[in-house]
Simulated scan of single mutants.
Amino acid sequence: MFNMIVPAFIVGGLICVVGQLLMDLTKPSFTPAHVLVSFVTGGAILGALGVYEPLIKLGGAGATIPLSGFGYTLAKGAIDAVGKRGIIGALSGGIEATAVGIAAAVFFGYLMSVTFNPKG
C-alpha cells in the first residue's frame, strides 16, 4: 500500500506544482481558467501521443485525478472508440469514457449546493 501512496503523492504533487508555477510566473495573464484548459488539453495531447500512460502506471491516482487525467481519458476514449466504430467514435468515445465522472461531479456539486449555505 505504501508503494502506491508515495508515487501517487509525488506525481500528483508535481502536476500541482506545475500549475502553481504557471500561475505564479505568468501573472496576471495566465489565470486559473488558463491552467484548467491547459491541463485538460495537455493531458489529451500526451494521452494521444502515448506519453501519459507510463505516468499513470507510475503514479496511479496521482496522475488520473488531476485535470490532465481527465484530458487523457477523453483522448483514450476517443481513440478506442475510433477503433470500434470509425469516425463516429471520435465524436462520441471521449464523452462515453468520461460520462460517469461528469455525472458524479454534477450530482455531488448539486448535493453540496443544496446541503450547505455559503456565508456572504
Rank of each mutant, 00 (worst) to 15 (best):
L67N: 10
S92E: 12
V100D: 10
I102W: 01
A99H: 11
I10D: 03
L67T: 06
I88C: 07
I15G: 02
A90L: 13
D80W: 01
G77Y: 02
I79D: 05
Y72F: 07
H34S: 10
F39V: 03
H34E: 07
T64F: 06
L111V: 13
A78T: 01
K57Q: 10
T31W: 11
P54K: 09
F2Q: 11
P118D: 14
K57S: 09
I88S: 08
G19W: 00
L67P: 05
L49N: 04
G42I: 05
I45C: 02
R85M: 07
G77V: 06
A44T: 00
L36M: 14
V11R: 05
V40A: 01
G120S: 15
V18D: 02
F116E: 07
I79V: 14
T115A: 13
F2E: 15
T115I: 14
V82N: 09
G43P: 03
F9C: 15
I56F: 00
V6H: 13
F107W: 08
V114Q: 10
V17L: 11
Q20F: 13
A78G: 06
G62Q: 08
A103Y: 08
G12D: 06
A81K: 04
P54E: 15
F2G: 11
V6I: 11
M23P: 03
G77D: 05
K84G: 01
G109P: 07
G19Q: 02
T26N: 15
P7G: 13
K76A: 05
G71S: 06
K57V: 05
L46D: 03
G50M: 09
G89F: 11
G59Q: 05
S92Y: 08
I10F: 03
G59T: 12
G59L: 07
G13T: 09
F2Y: 14
L67S: 12
T64P: 08
K27Y: 11
L74E: 03
S92W: 09
E96T: 08
I56Q: 00
D24W: 14
L46A: 11
G50W: 03
A44S: 06
G71H: 02
P66G: 06
F107N: 04
M23H: 01
G69R: 00
L55S: 01
T98A: 15
P28G: 14
L36Y: 04
G83C: 13
G47E: 00
S29G: 13
Y52F: 06
K76E: 06
G42F: 05
S68R: 00
G42V: 04
M1A: 12
F107H: 04
L22W: 08
V82P: 01
Q20W: 14
A81H: 11
M1H: 12
D80F: 01
G62V: 05
I5A: 15
K27W: 11
S38V: 14
G47I: 00
P32D: 09
G101A: 07
V106T: 08
L74N: 02
F30V: 10
A105H: 04
F116V: 13
Q20D: 13
K84P: 01
M1E: 15
M112K: 14
P66T: 12
P54S: 11
V11F: 09
I102P: 00
K27F: 12
V100Q: 07
F107R: 04
I10G: 03
F9Q: 10
Y110R: 12
G19F: 00
G50A: 12
V100P: 06
G101D: 03
F39Y: 10
